[in-house]
Design a protein around this nucleic acid. Sequence first.
RNA 1: GGCCCUGUCGUCCAGCGGUCUAGGACGCUGGCCUUUCAAGCCGGUAACGCGGGUUCGAAUCCCGUCGGGGCUGCCA
Length: 474
Amino acid sequence: MTVRVRIAPSPTGLLHVGNVRSALFNWLFARHHGGTFVLRIDDTDIERSEAKYEDDIKTGLAWLGLNWDEGVDAGGPHGTYRQSDRFNRYRQVAEQLVAGGHAYYDERTPEELDELRARAQREGKHPNVYIRRPAADATSGVVRFSVPQDAAVEFVDLVRDEMRFGQEVIDDFVILRSNGVPTYHLASTVDDVDYEITHVIRGEDLLPSTPKHILLTRAMEAEPAVYAHLPLLFGPDGKKLSKRHGDTSLKAYRRGGYLPEAMFNYLSLLGWSYDSETTIFSVEQAIERFDLAGVSKNPAVFDVDKLQWMNGEYVRAIEAADFTGRARPLIEAELGRPPTDDEWDTFVSVSTLIQERVKLMSEVGEMSRFLFVDEVSFDEPSWSKVMKGDAKVALAAALRRLSEVGDWTPASIEAGLRLVLDDTELNPRKGWQPLRVAVTGSQVSPPLFESMAAIGRAKTIARLQRALKRLERE
RNA sequence: GGCCCUGUCGUCCAGCGGUCUAGGACGCUGGCCUUUCAAGCCGGUAACGCGGGUUCGAAUCCCGUCGGGGCUGCCA
């Protein structure tokens, strides 16, 4: 049997990292088994679904490298893979279920239903036990699935093993709204059957819905898929990951300077492990080892600190040319225009030094700023911390010694600056930090000699003089 | 309230009856290196929720308890 899995996000908001993690596990499962990964858009909530969110989903998955073999845009034998294009099919199934006695029309009012729930509540029973087929047949309203009361629903979950839900706790859920629009339960189940999905791998929040889907599938006289419910992702407070915990959309991380490779690696570790020792591994390695049996049952807290560390690992690991390639748009953003050839050469001359220092790609622009501006704007905390005591002496000595430097290279600059220390009898910290602030604007920067070499002699001298002047005024 | 899932360092994972004085990673932290910051290297901190069983032996199996979470909608 060929494995066929799907990810079926709803385009009702930006793609959430929790869904991305589910997508990732589905993708790994498909790739590991040489199966098919399907992208379907579950847009039965016509009120909240928007095209821009579908775009965000596709962009996000593609960015992470989760290519889909079949589905929206990719095509395949099942149409558009958008549920809103299949409402007739779902209505047809609903009608068949009604005709077959598996479902019924229900025109009870919300108030009546509330009363039934309140009664169950009072008796300490499942809130929906009394929402069953009424004695009198209705011919309009919603369509409810009639849950067979003869047996419990049992199934084997690939992550959680044997599951059992008593029939009394499965309510007669709505499959078709009164306006003729199918609910998620119907549409999703019909699609899973029609698309011949073999494994449904999804978040644990849908575990209580699974018996409904199995019952529906059986009523359609089809074979239910194998289910696997993934642990949820939590925020730092131990609650389901949500907006309140900061960024939850993949887009925010994409924009925030995270590398897709790092995101992939990090997400794959939330609920799964490569082995007991390895933290950093490639996509190929993950595919080779991935196994649902190894998926944890416990929820995982999304730890941005660890993601950030991992991103730094990946940033440092990429080839220098790859780094400059990925950095180019960020330099453009910093300049507000494409860099000139000279500017680009300047950046490239120190790019490996910057690469070693950033955790996020988004830091590249700021860390490079001093390379391009005419005059640096001083980071005031840096200034006040460093520009005191013998700073004036150091700046003056540097100006003197640097004017004697022949070739403007890091090595000769270093030689000159070593003489500054001799002249002033200052240690490197006292003698050089003022120069760093003068030249880069901050006490944190790429190495000093290379930075001076990169911006050139003229700018270096001018910045030292400007700093000295300000110091003399103060 | 009802149903379901779940409980190893602060966090993510390893452990699937003895090799556990519980391992790796992030974080935090001490030190080294050092022109700043990173990186790197060496070291430290810190966990089997609790109570009963089963067993020669339990983090590993069973029961209970307490805790966390999810679902309970004409959202998905």
